[in-house]
């Protein structure tokens, strides 16, 4: 049982509830309520930043291309992007398949939710600025090149489901040891762990906040593991993260 922050669509504000991440249910008194019975919105309010190429396997897969044109050398600073507000959507809502593509890429990511403004925080103090963790599907239209910002591939409406809730920080003993699994139509498609992050959670927060402030409510995606599953119309995507729960969305 963990404390979580949840956003029901019938209220304007978020609510603190007890949840069971294992069964993805809300605990109300002595009852466990499944999320099928609730209508949820994304539990977040701020800006969503993502980190690209933050899994070792992702960087290894690029191999020698990192030292060739147009990249010339491997990335030095965290490679960041923004998922703007039009992309944010909640648990169970549909991911639209745009007309100009037949497949979408699932971006299974741990989302760090900022609880206290972070400017130039040290690695040691970084977690003090974290409210909790959520699950994010950073949906993209598959693209090969990372040279230019992928706004057209990443910023489509509803391309960023977030949820089902924010699990409080202290419920997760180590955010750098979380297993992430992706199921498409109940078939296991991807399994990885945040132990493979190049920049673990605290270091990522520290390095980013050195030049840009993270505000209360902002969300930082730690990265998307290599070999992201592809999905098509009619598929059901489920991303599970240890101790947080699962995020499920259909592609329509």
């Amino acid at each position: 049982m963990s404390k979580a922050i949840i956003k029901f669509s019938e209220t304007l504000h978020t609510k603190e509830v007890e949840v069971d991440p294992q069964s993805n249910t809300i605990i109300l008194g002595d009852r466990n309520v499944t999320l099928e019975q609730s209508s949820l919105e994304a539990p977040i309010s701020g800006t969503v930043y993502g980190a690209l190429l933050n899994y070792r396997g992702e960087l290894e897969a690029l191999g020698s291309s990192l030292t060739k044109e147009p990249y010339k050398e491997p990335p030095k600073a965290p490679v960041l992007y923004i998922k703007p507000v039009n992309t944010i959507t909640g648990f169970k809502s549909s991911i639209p398949l745009p007309e100009d593509t037949s497949q979408l890429q699932v971006g299974a990511s741990l989302g760090i939710v900022i609880g206290k403004k972070a400017t130039r925080v040290t690695e040691e103090k970084a977690l003090d600025h974290v409210l909790g963790y959520t699950i994010v599907n950073d949906v993209s239209i598959p693209h090969e090149s990372f040279y230019r910002p992928a706004v057209k591939q990443k910023a489509r409406d509803n391309f960023c489901p977030v949820g089902p809730w924010i699990i409080e920080r202290d419920a997760i003993s180590d955010p750098n040891k979380l297993t992430i699994t992706v199921f498409v139509n109940d078939v296991l498609k991807q399994k990885n762990t945040t132990a493979n992050l190049i920049r673990p959670v605290s270091r990522l927060i520290s390095e980013i906040s050195e030049f840009m402030t993270l505000y209360e409510g902002d969300v930082l995606l730690v990265g998307v593991p290599e070999n992201p599953p592809l999905v098509k119309e009619g598929d059901l995507v489920r991303i599970e993260i240890d101790g947080i729960g699962y995020l499920e969305n259909p592609v329509k």
């Binding site: 930043y49 990335p75 600073a77 490679v79 992928a150």
Partner: peptide, 17 residues
């Protein structure tokens, strides 16, 4: 100074406080 060739122009060049 902070220009890199990933998602260029990167946030460290263009999105500083």
């Amino acid at each position: 100074d902070y220009l890199e060739n990933y998602y260029r122009p990167n946030l460290k060049v263009k999105n500083r406080d």
